[in-house]
Design a protein around this nucleic acid. Structure first.
Lengths: 351, 351
DNA sequence: TTGTAAGCGTTATCAC
DNA sequence: GTGATAACGCTTACAA
């Protein structure tokens, strides 16, 4: 008990018979700068450790207008994509001496706005956000106002906000191109939130891959409304209730692919014999599904790491009063992981 | 820009030509108590909203010794079990006006200890922790010192610390009992961290189910060292390198089961024809694996919700100077979700 | 019904 | 080499 009691700097100073100033100085590594004797320095350091001194960051934050704290807002932390992203962000942030206040917007834009205010109240030094993506006004506002900000995953090309995401266009292009190379001609695309940027770019990659291979896109083959399991399920049922179902499906999120699997199971189809499937985003279980899944892997760890380094940059720009030029915009290459969920239609007979 | 500028209370008061006291009072809903005129109250409220006043929680925290902030430390936020738990905790906390500082210990006890200190420095009002579980000293210390604390998932029965977990014993018992009812006699148990309490109780449930059915436990059938995919993989390979492999495996975590699947795939066995499998903890993908998996479901949402309510209780006990009696200890019932990964050995021929 | 001022635990600016 | 003291933005006795 006395064990864990943590004194404040004033008590420490009193006990040491020194001024708070001196104690503060050595504790902040400024002993040299203020030519404090090696002896007192050592004495203070040791004493602080013995008495388990833990500086009060709240007081420090108030004084310094700097809390060493980052806000992280995520649409759904239980989504494994965001969970992994959050882990890498938390880790990298901690390495850099920053703590994370976690907020889950639940894909709800008005919750997201509240959360931003909450974080402003907490006086966080910066905000990393994977926005719901339907509205960026509040983000533009706080960015213009000077709050360091970086967007991950769900960005906007029209606005001049810093972001780091996957190269969604390229990932989708690769996937569809791969389908086509194996002889697929009718390829469905089950999408997520339609006017979210990642979705747009994935669809655009899908479209271009078709066109560049001389294939005509069909409107009825691009369906879906959000990144959920339910959506994947529903759209697949629709797809296969028609006369002319696709031979391949491109799922624009891992959750969507889970829904697709459920539907495919129910209507008693086999992957890849009856339908082929590629999923945007790799997961630990991707290799262990009934048919090991071909996926487009996003470099989540890298994304998280870069995001915190970008925001640290933004924080420094702000400190130096640097007038921000164009925002940093980073797209990370994806890679296609080929497994067994795509049938080769070029082979006359298959196994 | 002026749009989003947030004044402090002093500026507000000056602009309103009132004292900070008055402004503070109405902002904190104490207008009535101090008989402030309805007129000024309204004026202040409206003015604050117009000027986008956001109270500085850091200053407030310093003054009140209360930050409305909870520390959450988790061994691995990318583990879907903890991700879902974290989500429910964050949500319930926010509903109660509490923010979450997220820390990932990476299953590392010394990181965990550092994290606790970090959170002490942040002056969080309480800590919810899923400990690594190898050492509880630091937790006992801060608890005794008066920091409100609740442990989730990885607890200790020997120590008097508040916790909320699943009923691990019962879950394991149910699983093994189910195996036995379907005729299995040689059942392996691939465990996680051996001296973690959940692991101990799951093993103990396993053992008791065997004994109560008149079966003799075999030492070589209880193996494994942590909750990882790698462990599941390795142990399964070992299991099937021997002459006398089990007919059923009980996996003590979802990650372990993923490793098991990988190994089983590699050695070209089928579930449930060649081996049966039950996994402790349900996941969104459990139903979509090659063979839909029978699992023991943990009520993660409930667990999270209860955890924050318990800690709020602890915080109130502390405030009221109540001398804590025995700590709250809560075990949440699990349910078995039966799917197709368990073979019925009683049937003479199968399909 | 409203205001003055002290103080929460730090760090920074002067002073010696 | 070291120390007083003000200030960060807020709440709350204590006054009036």
């Amino acid at each position: 008990m006395a064990q864990k009691y943590s004194p404040n700097i004033r008590e420490l100073a009193a006990l040491l018979d020194l001024s708070v100033t001196t104690v503060s100085r050595v504790l902040n590594g400024k002993a040299e700068k203020y030519r404090i004797s090696k002896k007192t320095e050592k004495r203070v350091m040791q004493f602080a450790k013995e008495h388990n001194y833990i500086p009060n960051r709240i007081a420090r934050g108030l004084k310094m207008s700097k809390t060493d704290t980052l806000g992280l807002v995520i649409p759904d932390i239980a989504n494994p994509f965001f969970a992994e992203l959050a882990r890498s962000i938390e880790l990298e942030a901690r390495v850099k001496g920053l703590s994370i206040i976690l907020c889950d917007s639940g894909e709800n834009i008005s919750v997201e706005k509240e959360l931003i205010n909450l974080l402003m109240g907490h006086k966080v030094d910066g905000i990393i956000i994977a926005p719901v993506g339907t509205d960026f006004d509040h983000l533009v506002q706080i960015h213009e106002f000077g709050m360091p900000l970086v967007i991950v995953d769900r960005y906007s090309t029209e606005l001049d906000l810093p972001f780091v995401t996957s190269d969604n266009y390229q990932g989708a292009y690769d996937a569809v191109n791969y389908f086509i190379s194996l002889g697929h001609r009718k390829i469905a695309c089950i999408q997520g939130i339609q006017n979210s940027q990642p979705n747009k770019e994935r669809v655009s990659g899908y479209l271009d891959a078709l066109k560049n291979n001389g294939l005509e896109p069909e409107e009825s083959m691009i369906i879906g409304e959000d990144f959920s399991i339910e959506n994947g399920y529903k759209q697949t049922r629709i797809l296969f209730s028609k006369d002319d179902p696709p031979t391949a499906i491109f799922a624009l999120s891992n959750l969507i692919s889970l829904g697709i699997l459920k539907a495919i199971n129910e209507i008693d189809l086999k992957i890849p014999e009856d339908v082929s499937l590629i999923c945007f985003d790799e997961q630990p279980y991707s290799a262990f599904l009934e048919t090991p899944l071909t996926t487009i892997e996003q470099k989540k760890n890298e994304m998280g790491q870069i995001a915190v380094n970008v925001i640290i940059n933004e924080m420094e720009k702000k400190k130096d009063g640097e007038n921000k030029g164009k925002s940093v915009k980073i797209k990370i290459k994806t890679t296609i992981i080929k497994r067994e969920s795509v049938k080769n239609m070029n082979e006359f007979v298959r196994k």
